[in-house]
Structure formats: C-alpha cells, structure tokens
Simulated scan of single mutants.
Amino acid sequence: MRKVLAERLVSLPLVVLAMSAVIFGITYLVPGDAAESVAGVQADAAQVARLRQEMGLDAPLPSQYLSWLLDAVRGDLGRSLIDGAPVAGTIADRLPVTLSLTVAGAVVACLLGVPAGVMAGLRPRTLWDRAATTGASIGVAFPAFWLGLILVAIFSLRLGWLPATGYVPIDVDPAGWLGSIILPAVALGLTPAAALARQMRNSMAEVMGSDYVRTAHAKGMPRAQIVQRHALRNAAGPVVTQLGFWVAIMLGTSLIVEQVFSLPGIGGAMSNAIMQHDVPLLVGLALALVVIVVLVNLVVDLFLSALNPKTRQA
C-alpha cells in the first residue's frame, strides 16, 4: 500500500504538468481571445491589438505557458483576464460546491445501486433480479440534466417540497444545504447507481457461484455469514473500481447539473471562462478537476489494496 501511495504521489505533479500544457494549448484553438471579449464588439482592430499587448496575449504561446508555469510553481495561478480576480480565490469559492455535489451524488449512487445489486446477485433469475436489471438498464439511459429538469418540475414546481435553484453552504445551515443538494445529487447519482447495481449484481452472482462459497455451504456455514465475511468482500473490488470511474464522470457531469439548478460551482465559472477566452481562469479550474480525479484514483487504488491482500503484496 505504501508503494502504491508513493508511486501515485510522485506521478501527480507529472500528470498536472502534462494536463496544464494540454489545456493551455487547447484554449488557443478556440477562435478569438480575452482581448476581444473585454474590448467589445464596437472596438476597432487597433484597440484590440493594444489591449492584447497589455494582457500579454501577443507573446508566443510557449512563452505565455512558461510564464504561467513559473508563477504556478510558486503558488500563483494568476488572475482572470476579464475581471482581475485571483484564480486561486475563484477556485476556493466554487470548488466546495462542486465537490459537495459530487460527493452527494456518489452517496446516492451507492445507497441506491449497491443494495439493489446485492439483492439481485443473491437471487439470480428471480423477479427481483429481472426488476433490478431492467431498472438499471433504464437508469443508465437517463441524462443527468434531463432528469434534473424532471425532478424540478415534480418536487419543486408541482409539490413544492424542495427548492428548484440556489445553494446554501453546509457550514451556514446544514438543513438548508441538504435541501438544496438533494435534487441535484439524485439527478447526478441515478445513472451511476444503475451502473453500480449492474456491476454489483454480476460480481455477487459470480462470487456466490464460486468453489469456496460452495465449500462453505457444504461445511454448514450460515448463508448470512458467507455473504458478510466472504462474498461481499470479494465482490466489492470491481464495484469500487467502477465507482472511482463514475466519480470522475460525475465530477464532469456536475458542471452541467450546476447549470440546471443554478449552483455557484465550477461549472458556471468554467462556462464563462470558455466563452470569454479567460485562459488563466480556465486552466486553473481545469487543473483543480484534474487533481481531484487523480486523488480519487489514488483512493480507489488504496481501497483495492486493503480489500485484496494479493494486490498489497504485488
């Protein structure tokens, strides 16, 4: 486990460095730049050129990237080209919203998907198994933004149970935070829940049909004990791997769900940065997401190492 942790921590700066170069380069493939956004549509070419020079956008791309990278190494992610706000401050303000939504979505996915998959895997080819499999197939087909609109229409506009938009920080009002995050979390977590249910069902059915489980049955071990001590632990590995994959997907999907529920997360800031060609802000926000994805993969690897002794020895 220590070796896995050391390898991931060593590779983290390299991944961030590579992704920063990729993101920095991709932003310049989009037509236009921040100078045109700031100058406005009525500015002439001379005004745009002067503003571009003041912003440092007239320098070659490698020079701009090297200048940004040297500042980033010192902990300075720069300032927005549009409003001059520190990029690090914007990340600090908006990242907790995106993280809380992603974590809440992952909790919803686990609470819905894992028990359904376990019950279906323990009763293969039964009515419950068919119902869970059908429900999982339907759940995978639901886009998160579409489901969010349906949830708002039912639980906010028609029933009035939950707010349709807005966000309350958890440190200000935990109850208000829960009310503002339930619908977005369900919209975000339903598709992963369906995928986890299907994976858990297959893993549990395979484990329950293995030789060591049949041997335990033959020795008279109670079924509940077999499931708790052996089956769940061995079936959890593929599910944990898929959960890590879906957390990364949910982190990206949350940017869209935030727009549906008007949550002040990274999604809105990144959308504005793309439209306004705000390179420092866009690179900073994207790198924050990259770091989170790498850390999630690290947690998944450590958890798998804890579940599987053979992985720890390897």
Rank of each mutant, 00 (worst) to 15 (best):
A120I: 09
A175D: 10
A104W: 02
L147C: 03
S137G: 15
G117D: 13
L111G: 07
L149T: 02
A104G: 15
V168R: 03
P143L: 14
V114N: 08
P174G: 12
G148S: 07
A153E: 08
A144Y: 04
D171T: 12
A136S: 15
A141I: 10
D173A: 11
A132H: 10
L127I: 15
M119V: 14
G176I: 09
T134E: 01
G139L: 00
L127P: 00
R130A: 15
T102W: 02
L162Y: 04
S156N: 04
A106R: 00
A116N: 06
G139H: 00
T102S: 13
G121Q: 08
P163C: 08
G160W: 07
R130Q: 15
A141H: 11
P169T: 10
T102G: 11
L151V: 02
L112G: 07
I138P: 02
A153C: 03
V118S: 09
T126N: 13
V108P: 00
I154C: 03
D129W: 13
W128E: 10
R123D: 04
V140N: 12
P169K: 13
L112M: 11
W128L: 15
V140S: 08
G176C: 11
R125C: 11
I138S: 06
G117K: 07
A153R: 08
G135M: 07
W146V: 14
V108K: 00
I138K: 02
A132M: 03
G176M: 05
T165C: 02
D129V: 12
T134K: 01
V168N: 04
L111Y: 09
A131I: 15
G148Q: 14
W128C: 08
F155V: 06
A104R: 02
A131W: 13
A109L: 06
F142C: 02
T165D: 05
A144W: 04
D171S: 11
A109V: 07
V168A: 09
V103R: 03
V108A: 02
G176H: 05
L151I: 04
I138C: 08
F155H: 07
G166E: 13
A104I: 10
